[in-house]
Nucleic acid binder design. Structure first.
Lengths: 193, 193
DNA sequence: GTCAACTAACTATGTTCATAGTTAGGCTGT
DNA sequence: ACAGCCTAACTATGAACATAGTTAGTTGAC
C-alpha cells in the first residue's frame, strides 16, 4: 500500500507522465521506498481507476503519445489521510540478522566477508543520503528545488526540514549497522582463533 | 528464500513436527524473521520435496497423526552454503521514513502520535531482545538451552556469542530509531508552532 | 541516413507474504 | 457429557515484489 502513497507524494507537487514519475521517483522518494517500473505503471492505472489521479493524454512528436497524471482532490485527501494515520508495524524480517545469529556455521572468512559487505553497503547508502541532504540544503537537486518553488513560502522550512530529518534518520541507522558489523568483525576474530 | 534457511536453522538442532516448528519458531528465529503458520507448513512440504528434510509420520493418540521433520545431509549442506554466501542487499522500503519525509502534510498531533508510536514500538521490541539476551546468558529459555546442550562443548561460546551479537545489533538499531523519533518530536514542536 | 541512446509504456511469470478461515483430534475440568 | 483450550495441519485469496522481457516512437551524433 505504501507505493500508492509514495506516488501520491510525488504527484502533489506537479503532474507527471508515467515515465516522468519513474525518473523522479528514483531521485527522490525512491531513496526511502524503492519500486521498479513494472510496479509503478500498473499502480498508476489502478490509482486512476480509483479516482486518485486523472490521466490526460498528450501527443508526443508525430505519432507518440503519453499520459500525464494529475492528482485529484480525492487523491490529495487520501494522501492527507495517510499521513495523519499512525502506521501499524509489521514484525522484523531481516536476512542479515538471521544469518548473523547462525554465524557459527560459517567459514570465518565468509563471515568476515559478510560483515565487510554490510559495512560497504551501508556506507554507500549513507553517502547517498548525505548527498540528498546537501542537495536539499543548497537546492542543487532540480526535483527538490521544483517542489520547494511551487510551495508557499511558509511551508518551505517544513518541507526541507522533514526531508533532512528523514535522511538523517536513515544515515544514523546506517551508522548503527556499520558499527555493529565492525563489532562483528572483532567478534569473529575472537571466536574463530 | 530466507524463510527456508530460518527453518533449516531451527531443524539443525533437533527434528521437529510442523507444529513444533511453529512454536519454536516464535520463540527463537521468529525474533529476527517473522512468519505465519500459513507460510511455514507449505514451505516444510516444499523442503521435503526438495530433499532438504525427511518427514517421518508418527501416530498421536488413537487416531491422530503428525509428521516429524528431520534435516537431511543435503539440508545441512544447503544451510552451510547459505551462511557462507554473502547476501545481496535489496533497496530500502520503509513506510515510516517515507511518511516522515512528508510530515508537513500531517496535523501536528498526528505527527507527534506517529513518532510516539515509533518510540513505543521500538522500545517494546528492544525489551524483548534484551530478554532474549538475558535468557541466552542464564540459559532460562528451554529452546536455546536445548540447542546449547546438543552442541559440542567447543561450539557453545560461538553459538551463544553470535546470537547475543545479533540481538545486540537489533537493540542498537531500535535505540537509533527511538533517538531519531525523539528528535522528530522536537522538530515538530519547532516547525509547527 | 542510420545507429545508438533515450523516452514511453506495457506484459508475463513466479515468489513471498498477509489475512483469514477450516477441519479435526486430544486433554482437562466441571 | 460437554465446554473450552490446545495440538496439528491445511486452504483460499489477494496484494506486493522481483525479474525479465517486449514494443515502439523520438532525438541527436557521426
Amino acid at each position: 500500500m505504501s507505493l500508492r502513497y509514495a506516488l501520491l507524494a510525488l504527484l502533489t507537487s506537479q503532474p507527471l507522465t508515467g515515465y516522468d514519475v519513474l525518473k523522479h521517483f528514483e531521485q527522490s522518494v525512491g531513496y526511502v521506498w524503492h519500486a521498479p517500473d513494472s510496479q509503478i505503471y500498473p499502480e498508476l492505472r489502478r490509482m486512476e481507476k480509483d479516482g486518485l489521479l486523472r490521466g490526460v493524454e498528450e501527443t508526443w512528436g508525430k505519432k507518440g503519445k503519453k499520459k500525464r497524471y494529475h492528482i485529484t482532490p480525492e487523491g490529495v485527501e487520501a494522501f492527507r489521510a495517510w499521513v495523519n494515520t499512525t502506521l501499524d508495524y509489521t514484525r522484523e524480517r531481516d536476512p542479515i540478522h538471521l544469518k548473523a545469529a547462525y554465524l557459527e556455521w560459517a567459514e570465518p572468512d565468509a563471515a568476515r566477508a559478510q560483515m565487510q559487505a554490510h559495512i560497504a553497503y551501508h556506507s554507500s547508502r549513507a553517502q547517498q543520503w548525505q548527498e540528498m541532504i546537501d542537495a536539499l540544503k543548497d537546492r542543487s537537486n532540480p526535483i527538490l528545488a521544483a517542489r520547494l518553488e511551487t510551495a508557499p513560502d511558509a511551508d518551505r522550512a517544513k518541507i526541507s526540514g522533514y526531508k533532512i530529518f528523514t535522511y538523517e534518520g536513515m544515515i544514523e541507522r546506517a551508522k548503527a549497522e556499520i558499527e555493529w558489523a565492525r563489532r562483528g568483525l572483532e567478534l569473529i576474530d575472537k571466536l574463530e582463533s
